[in-house]
Design a protein around this nucleic acid. Structure first.
Length: 502
DNA sequence: GTAGGGTTAG
């Protein structure tokens, strides 16, 4: 019922259906994908309403937005608001505007989960003032901040290259009225380790606070994995020793972390010996162990050994998982042949496995890589038929290989097919912008410029290199006015080269 | 959002 009302409201504003290389101004292409059909179930209702509200936010005049939102004939719910925020993910300022207007809504109050989303968005934009303002408001309303909130903030600081600030965020939790515990301790350790800051995690947090929080197996596993991620397996072994000394029993996860660590560090012999040790001792080897072995052997080209391990596991009573098949298929593509990979794919289906997104993407990449464009496209169609929608990676692979093969038109047409669950990401834009230089055509450079502006509009910050390349291209082809616009944007992004002044 | 396996450019 309310669906129709929103639609009427939205359709009043003028819609620009745009394929970006045809007509400026740059406009988010998914606006042309709006779907106004009435949906039957409530989950779909929420999704459709979220899409409509997101469009409303994007198209409304900022001054009238609050009125429009407050006047909507529908009841906002936390689920709906979260979905809208997700839709506006790449329009940070708009998303925060929407969030703020709803804070003054007469009959709706934000949930803690929506606050977390808003904080995540502000953090992504590196707008820390807003981050802390939101935290304060959460606290004032007594709906947080929670340890999840702090994990989000810490992650954003780490992502912005400020791990020391992430640590301070963790240490300040109590000041913000949020108790710390072993969980939150492990979470911050993991965030640091996953970003390859194990040294910092170990020295500044783990060593100092492991007594206070009573570090457990999980804490030690996180640190061991941290060392493995930067290929320092001897340090991971030390951690293993240390945990045993402190009376903790390593789990199968601990061993799998080390096994993977050996492969990652290129220590194939050590990995094999470690695997034998695991079998010899009373460790319950599991499917993860086998998948690690298959993948590890495969990536160094030891296909026979990979196959042997793969066959052996069934004998041991451990069934391969989809991930095991994915590992096998991937290494066949890379070190054997796509034909054999496709055979493996068909075999898994015959055995009743359901391929997932990764399975398809691995096969599709393999086919493109082998120059089998048509078969790759057939697989993309096949996955859709199987109810598995292509994602960003699927499209990025297709776009990359078409462009590399000189078929820029086909690359662009794939780009235009993206939507909903597969919005372009930073890679997509980088691939496409690079492709605009191969034909050395003036029109292509204009498209490159438009893509650059669109990516900025979506919250991606292009590298200085990308800016300069596009800028030079435009200047050389006589597009001075457009170049000037790009330069203005570059300055806004803080990526201005020294010699330029506006 | 406390840990381990499978997509990312030769």
């Amino acid at each position: 019922m309310f669906q129709r009302n929103i639609n009427r409201r939205v359709t009043k504003t003028k819609t620009k259906t745009v394929f970006l290389h045809l007509c400026p101004p740059i406009h988010s292409f998914f606006l042309s994908y709006r779907n106004f059909t009435a949906q039957s179930t409530s989950a779909l209702d929420t999704a459709a309403a979220a899409a409509d509200i997101a469009t409303l936010v994007l198209e409304s005049d900022p001054k009238s937005l609050r009125g429009s939102l407050h006047g909507l004939p529908l009841q906002f719910t936390p689920e709906l608001v979260d979905k809208v925020l997700k839709r506006l993910w790449f329009h940070g300022p708009k998303a925060l505007q929407f969030f703020k207007h709803l804070e003054y809504h007469p009959s709706y109050a934000h949930s803690s989960s929506s606050f977390d989303h808003a904080i995540d968005i502000a953090g992504r934009m590196r707008d820390y003032k807003t981050v802390w303002a939101l935290v304060a408001r959460m606290r004032a309303r007594r709906i947080g901040p929670s340890s999840k909130t702090f994990a989000i903030i810490a992650e954003r600081f780490v992502g912005a290259g400020k791990p020391d600030r992430a640590i301070r965020v963790f240490l300040s939790m109590r000041e913000h009225g949020c108790p710390q515990d072993l969980h939150s301790f492990n979470t911050i350790l993991d965030i640091l380790c996953k970003s390859k800051r194990v040294e910092m995690a170990y020295n500044h947090l783990f060593k100092v606070l492991r007594g206070k929080f009573k570090a457990d197996v999980v804490s030690y596993n996180i640190i061991a994995n941290g060392w493995c991620l930067i290929k320092r397996t001897p340090k991971a072994l030390e951690v293993l020793k240390e945990m045993v000394e402190r009376g903790l029993t390593p789990t199968i996860t601990t061993y799998n972390i080390l096994l993977k660590g050996y492969f990652r560090a290129g220590q194939i012999k050590e990995a094999w010996e470690f695997f034998l040790q695991m079998k010899k001792r009373e460790v319950e080897i599991d499917v993860v162990t086998y998948t690690t072995m298959v993948h590890g052997f495969g990536v160094v080209g030891e296909i026979k050994r990979a196959r042997k391990v793969f066959n052996e596991m069934v004998g041991e009573g451990i069934l391969p998982s989809t991930a095991t098949y994915n590992a096998m298929i991937q290494v066949l593509c890379k070190k054997d042949s796509v034909e054999n990979a496709v055979l493996m794919f068909e075999e898994m289906i015959k055995k009743g496995y359901v391929p997932n997104l990764t399975t398809y993407n691995v096969v599709i990449r393999g086919l493109f890589h082998a120059g089998n464009m048509d078969r790759a496209m057939e697989f993309i169609e096949r996955m859709k038929t199987d109810g598995c929608e292509p994602n960003v990676q699927t499209y990025n692979v297709a776009i990359r290989y078409f462009c590399d093969a000189g078929d820029v038109e086909k690359g662009l047409s794939m780009f235009e097919k993206m939507g909903q669950g597969s919005l372009p990401n930073l890679d997509t834009y980088n691939i496409l912008i690079s492709a605009m230089f191969v034909r050395k055509k003036s029109e292509d450079l204009v498209v490159a410029g438009k893509l650059l502006l669109e990516m900025i509009d979506r919250g991606f910050i292009p590298r200085k290199f990308t800016f300069n390349r596009v800028l030079n291209g435009l200047l050389l082809t006589g597009n001075q006015a457009f170049a000037k616009e790009i330069l203005r944007q570059q300055s806004k992004c803080g990526r201005l080269p020294r010699q330029f002044k506006l």
